[in-house]
């Protein structure tokens, strides 16, 4: 079946809600689908009691989801833009992530927080960011960041079933992308990477929108005789380090590509971890692709210049190979 990243997520929500009456969806404008039509149709099927429009109160609705999760529901909260997550960070970081630990294992928070980031829609500096590295820094949270519709649906199913808080970071540019999906999408386990293109010369570990950019880069480099292996971690926390190391030990070169600001980005964590674990297997220092250390500009020419893309990956591959 041909579907889109957005529709695959909506279908996964509907499947989970049909299977489990404790699964509820809440967020701003969710009953009318939200700005990206992800939740379109859910209110019609499941009613306003399970698909709840909330006031524009990110802190409280995140806390409401936590309290509801501790009291037996499986809430799927939508924070419309990851940029708005700043308003809910106490609830996510100090409350959801720590309740199980502080209670010695008594108070789990089985909630899912769906949000989306990424630039490319001329959204300017407050509607375009990629902030996943903040979330990856917090023990107690799981963080998934799907690049394909099949993973977005499959990881969401696993996130809803998970006993711990899971943040699903979607990408606004990916929502309308079309993809061939099986009739029944199987859950994708959290913490398992996927190799999307095999190659022997260099590993590109790419996240979210940078996966398709990296696949494009691999096509270009193949024409030059460079075989790129593209690996999508799919889950950032917990990271599938064995899969990354397995690839690096074959290719001996690693490029980490994400759209987030490179400075303090999750790519730095991966680079440090891989260099520690596989130093003798690397023929060159790990290269990173990320955005410059600046807010995201509005004007099309400025935003295009800001955004990492396939050309950035090609350049990084050439650097890591010394070409």
């Amino acid at each position: 079946m041909i579907t889109t990243y957005a529709r695959a997520i909506g279908a996964a929500l509907a499947t989970a809600m049909r299977a489990d009456p404790s699964v509820v969806v809440l967020g701003e404008d969710v009953s009318v689908g939200g700005p990206f039509t992800v939740t379109t149709g859910l209110a019609e099927e499941f009613g306003a009691g399970r698909v709840l429009d909330t006031p524009i109160s990110e802190a409280a609705i995140c806390g409401v989801a936590i309290g509801a999760a501790q009291s037996g529901l499986r809430p799927v909260l939508e924070i419309m833009y990851v940029d708005f997550l700043t308003l809910a960070l106490d609830q996510l970081v100090n409350q959801a992530a720590k309740a199980r630990f502080m209670s010695g294992g008594q108070l789990g928070v089985p909630m899912v927080l769906r949000t989306q980031g990424g630039a490319g829609q001329r959204g300017a500096a407050q509607h375009s960011q990629s902030l996943e590295s903040w979330l990856c820094h917090v023990p107690g949270l799981k963080v998934v960041m799907p690049s394909r519709a099949v993973d977005a649906a499959g990881l969401l199913a696993s996130a809803i079933a998970d006993p711990d808080p899971v943040v699903v970071v979607e990408n606004k540019i990916l929502y309308p992308r079309r993809e061939q999906l099986p009739e029944v999408v199987e859950p994708v386990p959290i913490g398992v990477a996927a190799t999307l293109r095999p190659g022997r010369d260099v590993t590109v570990l790419a996240m979210s929108r940078m996966v398709s950019e990296s696949l494009d880069a691999a096509d270009q480099l193949a024409a030059e005789g460079v075989e790129v292996e593209v690996v999508d971690p799919r889950t950032l926390v917990p990271l599938d380090l064995p899969a990354v190391l397995d690839s690096v030990r074959r290719t001996h070169h690693l490029v980490v590509a994400h759209e987030a600001v490179a400075h303090g980005g999750f790519g730095a964590e991966i680079a440090a971890t891989v260099q520690k674990a596989a130093f003798d297997d690397l023929d060159a220092p790990v290269e990173r692709v990320g955005a410059p250390f600046q807010p995201i500009p509005l004007s099309p020419g400025l935003e295009d210049a800001y955004l990492p893309d396939a050309a950035s990956v090609v350049a990084a591959v050439r650097r890591v190979l010394g070409r």
Binding site: R50, A60, G63, V64, G67, A69, L73, Q91, Q95
Partner: peptide, 25 residues
Amino acid sequence: FLGTSGIVGQGIPHATGAAWAAQIR
């Protein structure tokens, strides 16, 4: 007793959410 918040005021939404769960039950 569903726990506490050491951050002032941040347990109030949890009571609200638990009440939402009770309403749904």
